[in-house]
């Protein structure tokens, strides 16, 4: 049984590296990534699971890191926006003007990246469902839609 009774040293696998953090059992992954690992790409947009700005990829799935305990992430593979290395979705976001202020961008990129990995050829309704998890307040979303479609078409 895995048990953490109090603030302890935990081992996380983040962006392919094993990292050591000090966390309370009640700490959320978002805060640990930001405050301990300086991975501030994931943003605290609502801390309630509603906006998606904190989305990271955990074992291949998009996860809102504000609603995951750091303790839950032990033993899993976490990818943050800082772990994307020239992923096609980054370039597509730039070329399609899929962001303005940039605050929601990390979360959207992670949702898009996970989608492209899990469903390289999704029907439109699946794209809609996945990306409805995030909020962008600057763009019209049309630009984000164009960006993900560019990435998916490259996968064909």
């Amino acid at each position: 049984m895995f048990r953490i009774k109090e603030k302890s040293i935990l081992h996380l696998n983040v962006n392919g590296e094993d990292r050591e953090v000090v966390a309370r059992p009640s700490d959320i992954l978002l805060d640990t990534l930001r405050n301990q690992l300086a991975l501030t790409g994931a943003k605290p947009g609502c801390e309630n699971g509603d906006c998606g700005a904190c989305t990271v990829i955990v074992d291949g799935w998009p996860i809102k890191s504000c609603l995951m305990l750091t303790a839950e992430a032990v033993g899993k593979k976490i990818t943050t926006v800082e772990g994307l290395k020239n992923a096609p979705v980054q370039k597509a976001f730039i070329e399609k003007f899929a962001f303005q202020c940039g605050y929601c961008t990390s979360g959207f990129l992670m949702a898009c990246h996970a989608l492209a990995q899990k469903h390289p050829n999704p029907p439109d309704y699946v794209i809609d469902e996945w990306l409805q998890s995030n909020i962008c307040r600057c763009t019209s979303y049309e630009e984000i839609g164009e960006a993900i479609r560019v990435v998916l078409s490259q996968k064909q």
Binding site: G41, V81, E82, Q90, F93, F99, G102, Y103, S106
Partner: peptide, 20 residues
């Protein structure tokens, strides 16, 4: 293309609460 484009798609763009 906006000047800070790559900062914003890599998590490198820093906002007020990003530095602690």
């Amino acid at each position: 293309i906006r000047k800070e484009a790559w900062d914003k798609v890599t998590g490198n763009a820093k906002y007020t609460a990003d530095e602690n």
